[in-house]
Amino acid sequence: MKKAFDITLRLLLVAIAISVAATSVYSQEMNKEEWQKQITDLTTKRNDLKNKLTAAQSEVAALQKQDADKATALKLCQDELAQTMKANSAADESAFASSVDNPDAKLNDLSKLSNQDLYARRAELDSVQAWIDNAKKSPFSAVEKYANRLKDVQGRLDALRKSLEQSIASGQAMQTYTVGTWAKDRDCLWNIAKKPKIYDNAFLWPKIWQGNRDQIKNADVIHPGQKLKIPPKAELTKQEKSALRSYWDKKQVAAAPTK
């Protein structure tokens, strides 16, 4: 009897152990309540998201319309601007745009020169200024991007001019002239000053003389190959006039008959 009870008891203990273990395993999986809760939560979330999606789709549609309207307005404006340009300008926009590159390149080139070389090519600064003045007559010059470029070109040109003026004032920049032969070029200070590219005024020859005292001892004697500095064209200074007077005095003394 006792043995039978023990066996029954042990079987029951084993059964309980199995049952508890089974409960434990089962509890890790979902039960119906949890399923129901998840279904409810997800359904709520889905409905919220659907509302959000609908709102986002409406916003996108509104933005697409706004984008299309802006594109139409932009096209209209651009067409009107192009028509205005066409009616008032001989050149088209691309021609004008590429023409701005020329003075730009010219200024780049000139800005790399020494003061001396810049002085020699100063006429090119005038040609850039003439281009700017002409470009300003075109309606394209009023378009901001071109107006800014022209402003930039003008600014760079002014800076170069200022730098050139400063170097002229300080005597750093002067045109030079290489003396040729008398036989071929008829070069003397008088004739050199008379050349259109020099002073176009023979009476300014003392400027060249006084500007080159280091290599011209006698104003009547210059040699082929001499590289003369040409001071900027201006009226003769007091010193140059004085040198001229003493030149003529010496000439007169030399010409006077010897006793």
Partner: peptide, 26 residues
């Protein structure tokens, strides 16, 4: 779309400004 609209708007404003400036220039 918002970026595209802002970009177009900026170009449109510039175009209107240029148009006005060109008309004044003429």
């Amino acid at each position: 779309l918002q970026r595209a609209i802002a970009e177009k708007d900026s170009r449109l404003q510039q175009c209107l400004k240029d148009k006005e400036a060109v008309q004044q220039h003429i």
